[in-house]
Amino acid sequence: MTNKKFAAFIVTYNRPDILMDTIEKCLNQTMPPEKLLIVDNNDNEDTKNKLAQLYPNAAHIMVGHNSGFAGGGKIGLETLAKEGYEWILWADDNDPPYTEDTFEKLLKMAESYGATCGQVGVVGHKLNRRTGLLIRTANEELQNCEYLEVDTIGGGMIKIIRGASVLKGIVPEPKLFFGFEDLDFDLSQKRAGYKIVVHSGLFLDLRKKWNRMSVKHTRIRKKDESVLWRDYYSIRNSLFVMAKNRYYTAFFSILFVSIGKSLLNYKHGFRYGSLVTRNTCRAIRDYGLSRWYVRYLPGKPTPKTKKK
Rank of each mutant, 00 (worst) to 15 (best):
M1D: 10
A8L: 08
A8E: 03
F9P: 00
F9L: 01
V11P: 00
T12W: 02
Y13D: 00
P16D: 00
D17N: 13
T22Q: 02
I23T: 02
E24W: 02
K25I: 15
K25G: 12
N28C: 03
N28I: 04
Q29E: 06
M31K: 15
M31P: 00
P32I: 09
P32M: 00
K35H: 07
L36V: 09
V39D: 07
V39M: 11
N42T: 12
D43G: 12
N49R: 14
Q53L: 13
Y55A: 08
I61G: 03
G64T: 05
F69Q: 13
F69Y: 08
A70L: 08
A70G: 10
G73H: 06
K74I: 04
I75A: 09
G76C: 03
G76V: 02
A81P: 10
K82G: 06
E83S: 04
E86P: 00
D93P: 01
L106K: 13
L107K: 07
K108T: 06
A110D: 01
E111L: 03
E111D: 13
Y113A: 06
G114E: 14
A115S: 12
A115Y: 01
C117G: 02
G118F: 10
V120E: 01
H125S: 08
N128S: 11
N128R: 06
R129W: 10
R130I: 04
R130K: 13
G132M: 10
L133Y: 15
I135G: 03
A138C: 01
N139L: 05
E141I: 00
C145W: 00
C145M: 02
E149T: 05
E149C: 00
I153T: 04
G156Q: 02
R162Q: 13
G163C: 04
L167R: 10
G169D: 05
V171E: 09
E173D: 15
P174M: 08
P174C: 14
L176W: 10
L176G: 12
F177H: 14
F178W: 11
F178E: 07
E181Y: 07
D182Q: 01
D182W: 00
L187W: 11
S188F: 07
R191F: 07
K195P: 00
V197D: 04
D205E: 08
D205C: 02
L206V: 03
R207A: 03
S214F: 14
H217Q: 15
H217Y: 15
H217W: 15
R221I: 01
R221L: 05
K222M: 13
K222W: 08
D224F: 09
D224I: 10
E225H: 09
E225I: 14
E225L: 05
D231L: 14
D231H: 12
F240Q: 03
A243E: 15
A243S: 14
A243W: 13
R246H: 06
T249G: 02
F251S: 09
S253Y: 14
L255E: 01
F256I: 15
V257L: 07
S258Y: 07
K261C: 11
S262L: 03
K267V: 06
G269S: 11
F270S: 01
L275V: 12
V276T: 05
C281E: 01
I284E: 01
Y287V: 05
G288A: 07
G288F: 04
L289C: 10
S290K: 15
S290L: 09
R291N: 07
Y296N: 05
L297E: 12
G299A: 07
K300H: 14
T302I: 11
T302Q: 05
K304N: 08
K306C: 05
K308Q: 04
